[in-house]
Simulated assay, not measured.
Amino acid sequence: MSRFNAQVDARIYSPKEKHAVIFDTFNNLKSGEEMELLNDHDPKPLHYQFLAEYTEQFEWEYLEQGPEVWRVAIKKK
């Protein structure tokens, strides 16, 4: 069984849809649950957006850092 409660493969969404899908998925998590994010580049700008909008409400863990695929575990506190 996967450790993740949800997964978003951002590679399949258009740039304008990506963040909305990611934040919707995060908002639907319960406290203590985790989502896995897959992307084709380092999602550092997204991390900064999480820091600004969800201060102290999440944990961010890189699982794989390219060069072709980035995987991030995002846990809701």
Rank of each mutant, 00 (worst) to 15 (best):
A20N: 12
A52W: 01
Q7S: 12
N27E: 15
I74H: 02
Y54S: 08
D9I: 02
G32E: 03
Q49R: 12
E36R: 15
P43S: 02
R3W: 07
L37S: 02
H41R: 13
E68F: 06
P67N: 08
P15V: 09
N27K: 14
V69L: 14
A52Y: 02
Y54G: 05
A20I: 13
K76Q: 08
F4R: 05
E17W: 01
R11A: 10
E34D: 12
I12T: 11
L46H: 00
F4E: 06
P15F: 01
S14P: 05
K75M: 04
K44A: 05
E17D: 14
Q57L: 13
R11G: 07
E56F: 11
P67K: 07
M1V: 12
D42T: 03
V69N: 07
E34W: 00
K18D: 00
L51W: 01
K76S: 06
Y13M: 06
H47R: 15
A6G: 05
Y13V: 05
L63N: 08
M1R: 10
I22T: 04
Y48Q: 08
G66P: 07
E64D: 10
M1S: 13
V69H: 08
Q49F: 14
L37A: 03
V21L: 06
A6N: 04
V72H: 07
S31G: 06
K44P: 00
T55R: 11
E36D: 00
Q7D: 00
A20W: 03
Y13R: 06
G66I: 04
F4M: 07
L63A: 07
W60A: 05
K16F: 08
I22R: 01
A6C: 03
L37P: 05
M35T: 00
G32N: 10
T25W: 00
R3M: 13
D24W: 02
E61D: 11
D40P: 08
L46M: 12
A10S: 15
L29T: 08
L46E: 02
D9G: 05
L63F: 08
A10N: 04
W70H: 05
D42E: 12
I22L: 14
E33G: 05
E36P: 03
E61R: 10
I22F: 04
E61I: 09
I22W: 04
H47F: 14
S14W: 01
T25G: 04
T25E: 03
E53G: 14
Q57Y: 00
K18F: 01
E68I: 01
V69Q: 11
S31N: 13
E64W: 01
L63I: 14
D42M: 03
K44V: 13
N27Y: 02
Y48S: 06
H41N: 08
R71K: 15
K77W: 04
A6D: 06
R11S: 06
A73F: 00
